Computed example of a mutant assay.
Amino acid sequence: MSERTRERFDSLVDKHQELALTDTAHVFGVFRREDGVHLGMVDFSTLARDDFQWGRIGYTIHNQYWRIGYGKEAVEAADYCLTSLAMFFTTE
């Protein structure tokens, strides 16, 4: 936990913004609805933008929140977002 400083967090946010600008990855925080506690992250990694769209969804949940269903809920929400926004990523 000694590495979990404000400077480290700011650096991580900067790196995530850089990845988004280059369309390499898009990283989103996962927070508990009731109290805003940070549970982890969901990321979309771009693997191909060609005649087809190919990417990866990943997630990280802090270990104290494992086996409660937060990972499943985060991935379901990510899938819903991708499905809902798919029209913006077509090459037509």
Score class of each variant (00 low, 15 high):
Leu19Glu: 15
Phe31Ile: 02
Ala77Gln: 11
Gly58Phe: 04
Val42Leu: 08
Ile57Trp: 04
Gly71His: 10
Asn63Ala: 00
Tyr70His: 02
Phe88Tyr: 15
Glu76Met: 11
Trp66Val: 00
Asp35Met: 00
Lys15Asp: 08
Ala25Asn: 06
Arg8Gln: 13
Lys72Gln: 01
Thr22Tyr: 07
His62Ile: 06
Glu3Cys: 08
Leu12Ile: 10
Val27Met: 00
Asp10Lys: 14
Lys72Leu: 06
Val42Arg: 01
Thr90Gln: 15
Thr5Asp: 06
Glu34Gln: 09
Gly29Gln: 11
Phe88Pro: 05
Asn63Thr: 00
Gln53Asn: 07
His26Ser: 08
Asn63Lys: 09
Met41Arg: 07
Ala25Asp: 02
Glu3His: 10
Val37Cys: 06
Leu85Ile: 08
His38Pro: 01
Arg8Ala: 15
Gly55Arg: 03
Glu73Arg: 07
Asp79Gly: 09
His38Glu: 03
Tyr59Met: 08
Phe28Gly: 00
Glu92Phe: 13
Gly40Ala: 03
His16Trp: 15
Ser45Thr: 13
Thr24Lys: 15
Arg32Gly: 01
Leu21Asp: 11
Thr60Tyr: 05
Val30Tyr: 04
Leu82Lys: 01
Gly69Arg: 07
Ser11Phe: 09
Val37Leu: 10
Trp66Asp: 08
Tyr80Glu: 05
Phe31Cys: 06
Met87His: 15
Thr24Tyr: 13
Arg4Tyr: 11
Ile68Pro: 00
Ala25Trp: 00
Asn63Asp: 06
Thr24Asn: 15
Arg49Thr: 11
Met1Leu: 06
Glu7Cys: 03
His16Pro: 01
Arg33Phe: 02
Phe44Asn: 01
Ala86His: 14
Val27His: 02
Asn63Met: 00
Leu12Met: 13
Thr24Gly: 15
Glu7Gly: 06
Thr5Leu: 01
Glu76Arg: 12
Ala78Leu: 01
Met41Phe: 10
Leu47Lys: 11
Trp54Tyr: 13
Phe44Ala: 04
Gln64Pro: 03
Glu92Asp: 14
Thr46Gly: 02
Leu85Met: 13
Tyr80Val: 04
Asp10Ala: 14
Cys81Asn: 05
His16Asn: 11
Val27Ser: 01
Arg6Pro: 09
Gly69Leu: 03
Met1Cys: 05
Val13Asn: 08
Ala25Phe: 05
Phe89Ile: 08
Leu39His: 02
Lys72Ser: 10
Leu47His: 12
Arg6Trp: 12
Gly29Lys: 11
Glu3Asn: 10
Thr83Val: 11
Glu18Thr: 07
Tyr80Gly: 04
Tyr80Leu: 01
Gly40Asn: 03
Trp54Phe: 13
His62Lys: 05
Gln64Lys: 11
Phe44Glu: 04
Ile61Asp: 09
Arg8Lys: 14
His62Val: 03
Thr91Leu: 12
Phe44His: 04
Met41Asn: 12
Glu73Pro: 08
Arg32Ala: 03
Thr83Leu: 09
Glu34His: 04
Thr46Phe: 04
Met1Val: 04
